[in-house]
Design a protein around this nucleic acid. Structure first.
Lengths: 201, 201, 201, 201
DNA sequence: TATGAATGAGCTTTCATTCAT
DNA sequence: CATGAATGAAAGCTCATTCAT
């Protein structure tokens, strides 16, 4: 089914992808209506089901596509030789920023998908979600923690930063007037604060 | 309508409240089905609507009740004379722990309600949500930040801790096997880490 | 079941009867809710069903009671020796007026019952409705039509007058501010008009 | 929403309209079940709501359509130069007869709608009801009453005739075996009777 | 006798999905 | 490929009726 979809013009593909990302990101799996998606994409109801069989099929495709795209962008933006904790984070954030340029709702979609409550949807993304997490995990492995204070629980530090970044992103989305650049600057400010606290003097 | 409900036996009241808390916490406003709630509570469809008029009425009541209960518990557990940053946090977490004993899903419900996307539900809790936030705000005002390192952005520090705690709680819920005590201990460990980083030597 | 009901105090009986008359008259059988009736009567839900078994049982009783009461009042007010067409009509209207004093909604209830659409309700009143119609029929038989113009279709004349009177009553009810005396005067005015047209010069 | 509906084939449109007219006419707004309407129309539940949004939307549409259709038919059948009281009435009845050929329940629906008790339904038709009443009013203005007896209360005469005609129609409907032509002939007979009574010798 | 909490069938409405064109 | 009319299961809600007290 995907092959059929990729035969479409790139512009139409992206219109459909962005429509689905937006509606799923704003309403969750259950709350997203296929009517809203087709209206947003400017296509017919039948066409959506022609390409994606059913709602969960569309959801699965969109998540796969997003995870893949995100990984690609991370690969491009994150220097594999970089070992500095905070620099690596900064590059990861830059990658996310790049994503937002083409797919404004992709980050929020990916994040919200993690907290999806419908079992169908949880199951559908399970595998690809792990792939993305593994990628983040691998990026972390290149970090040299020697510059950080002794006795610091690295796992906890990572989790705090990750939860904070996600929380900030969600807040920005909720406030409606979303500007990628502002969020990016705010995240950097938090990273800077953490750097001051966690780095050896 | 609330008066009718409060005439019921305490045990039945709590069965209904816990059923609603659970189903709303796990599925959000839209995803929560009144059928699931009545099944969980062991009552009939009609009775639910007899007491709460409609779904949004139930949601409003449950949120009000939770906010009120939470505030009560915070008032009990948090010593108003305590000024130590981390001690205050610890006491707030103790209060949450207490709540979980009677209402296992109340915390998650309250947290998830903040990120509700259905406008009906957003509107319904607006007022009480502010009340709860104000209460947290007031607790923070009793903290003396002199013990923390110079030049620290206090607002950012608070937000990081809050987002981390909420994130941990959500994770625990998602993993299903939820044990309040474990979550409590984990949060304390994070607080301890932050204390070491942020306090003056 | 009726015997039980008649053991109640007259005042309570009438409170229940008037409540049922009002709610049925204003909303029809289907639209009438038993909740509204018990609220209007100031009794409990259970009691209503204790006395009348079910909604259709109440409806049947109320119709029977009304038909019987109406017939009684007609017997009292209409002089069996009166043969004048218009005088007889006037006396029938006086009887209706009397009814309204104790049971303000009885006329409208009886009339509306004729046009009930729910088959249950139609069936329930069938027999008593005929009884009432027969009574009206008998009253008509005492009329001497010699005073009316030659060649007049008496049946049609009766029907026109009856439909007009019923229509006027319904209109008065719809306008809310119902005053029995005003309706009575208006009906007499119509009768007077018909008298002038139909009587021999 | 109406545009979508009017794109359907005329035959299907009329099947839906007639189904709604019948069920509403026989049961009133509240008593009419959408299940009955779709069964009568031979369509699915969803389709009804696809075209008319909700029950009151359907009711509004059906009333508007009926009022418009009725006015059109009156305009066609009633000669604006005709001044004879009874001839004008006869032409109005002819118009109604024409309507019944395509929409057997339209007259009864329109009449019953006047006596609707549900506030939603009352509100929905308010405007169009006045339009129809104004049209009847205008037709009456073309009548020259000089041919009628002196001292006759014209308003009362009109009301008597109107109430009689409506009453006869309702009776015919209630007797089930409805034949437009029979009703038409009966109404003409009543008009003839009134003519003899009310016209100058 | 009297209460009103409790029930569940039935109603309106929504929405993912299908299919003739 | 593309459309959108059409479907029907499922959801929220109502209300006559029952029953423990």
């Amino acid at each position: 089914m995907n092959s059929k979809f990729f035969d479409l013009g790139k512009e139409k593909q992206d219109r459909m992808i962005n429509a689905a990302l937006k509606v799923f990101a704003l309403n969750g799996y259950k709350g997203a209506s296929t009517d809203d998606i087709v209206k947003e994409a400017g296509i017919s109801k039948g066409l959506l089901f022609h390409y994606f069989t059913n709602k969960i099929g569309l959801y699965t495709f969109i998540y796969d596509y997003s995870a893949r795209y995100m990984i690609l962008e991370l690969t491009t933006e994150v220097d594999q030789k970089e070992t500095d904790f905070f620099e690596v984070y900064k590059q990861m954030e830059t990658a996310k920023m790049q994503v937002l340029k083409n797919y404004p709702y992709m980050q929020e979609f990916l994040y919200r998908a993690n907290y999806e409550d419908v079992s169908e949807a949880m199951l559908a993304i399970e595998e690809k979600k792990r792939l993305l997490e593994d990628h983040y995990e691998n990026i972390r492995k290149q970090i040299d923690y020697a510059a950080l204070k002794e006795g610091l629980d690295i796992t906890k530090l990572h989790k705090m930063i990750d939860l904070t970044i996600q929380g900030l992103m969600t807040e920005h989305f909720r406030e409606g007037s979303f500007h990628a650049e502002m969020l990016y600057q705010e995240i950097l400010a938090y990273l800077e604060m953490v750097r001051k606290l966690a780095q050896k003097e």
